[in-house]
């Protein structure tokens, strides 16, 4: 350019003012982007998906039934026909582990879902109303928290027979308190945020504030807590079944399979390792995913 022109004043019209805006990206898209960067969490997610798919479809393709005994072929070793061998009644261990996965995962998801519903409603009301109501509701939570879950199960045994219902009730009574505490804490702090105050000055009703502003903003910690509750519930069910308080034969869960397997542990270790492997892998996977979600959904990291 010629030198004289360089020092010409530029008119306003010539200036194309570039607007400063960051690329539009929604909350979940942004969280997914961050989750994808976390390799362990993604590995966890993949493993969980595989286990779930196996639990749903595996038994359909298996030539054996979970309770189909074959006394001619007891304690069969690992082979092409029986991937994990057979047990003392000749039942296919692989089929039983997949079937057990249905029970164990169902316990995990259902327990987590029940706790999610009770915990969010209870914690949300407690935190939102505040004051005396909050005080009373939280003391109840403290009391429930102080009763060992195992004690509840044993007490329930007096009334009911061992079985799935028993486990669901026990988990339902005791596990939601953690969720309720987290939701209450979130609600208490969100209630004081300026955007909630702003909604009040606009004339918004309490219900509207709770549904539109508080719950959506608390969803991150809720999702994380619910995710981390699943492995907890699975582990608790396995533990109960292992000590004989859970599901009974011929039904199977990972815990009861492990319990059966431990009897012949020295001669047939495959019967213990198969369910144990599934328990450990799913435990780790859910925990990795939960931690990953915690980082991905943390609003402080969102800039």
């Amino acid at each position: 350019m010629e030198e004289e022109k360089l020092f010409e004043k530029i008119s306003k019209e010539e200036l194309e003012i570039k607007e400063f805006v960051r690329p539009s990206i929604g909350y979940w898209a942004d969280a997914w982007r961050r989750l994808k960067m976390n390799r362990l969490a993604i590995a966890g997610l993949v493993m969980i998906s595989i286990v779930i798919l196996l639990a749903i479809f595996g038994p359909m393709f298996s030539p054996y039934g979970y309770d189909e005994t074959n006394l001619n072929n007891v304690y069969a070793p690992i082979s092409r026909e029986h991937w994990f061998g057979t047990d003392e009644l000749g039942r296919d261990e692989f089929t039983r582990v997949l079937y057990g996965a249905r029970i164990s995962l169902a316990v995990g998801f259902v327990a987590s879902f029940i706790n999610l519903i009770i915990g969010v409603i209870y914690g949300g009301i407690s935190g939102f109303l505040g004051g005396k109501t909050d005080n009373i509701m939280m003391r109840i939570v403290d009391i429930l928290y102080s009763i060992p879950t195992l004690l509840i199960v044993i007490l329930l045994m007096v009334v009911l027979k061992p079985g799935l219902t028993n486990i669901f009730i026990a988990l339902g009574i005791s596990y939601w308190v953690g969720m309720a505490r987290i939701v209450r804490g979130q609600t208490l702090s969100l209630k004081e945020q300026e955007f909630t105050l702003a909604a009040r000055t606009l004339g918004a009703s309490r219900t509207r504030i709770l549904i539109r502003h508080i719950v959506p903003n608390a969803i991150g910690p809720i999702v994380v807590t619910a995710t981390l509750l699943i492995p907890n519930a699975i582990f608790f069910e396995s533990f109960l079944s292992f000590i004989g308080l859970g599901v009974s034969a011929p039904m199977a869960s990972w815990g009861s399979l492990a319990s059966d397997g431990i009897r012949g542990f020295q001669s047939h270790p495959n019967l213990l390792f198969a369910p144990a492997l599934f328990i450990s892998v799913s435990m780790l996977s859910f925990n990795f995913l939960g931690d990953g979600l915690r980082d991905a959904l943390d609003p402080r990291l969102r800039k």
């Binding site: 300026e194 955007f195 702003a198 606009l202 539109r212 903003n217 609003p299």
Partner: peptide
């Protein structure tokens, strides 16, 4: 009754980062 009055009476807050709901 107050909520009706709030149509004519409004407020602006200090922190432009905290006063807008990040999810909307």
């Amino acid at each position: 009754e107050m909520n009706k009055v709030r149509r004519r009476l409004q407020m602006i807050f200090q922190d432009p980062y905290a006063s807008l709901d990040p999810r909307l």
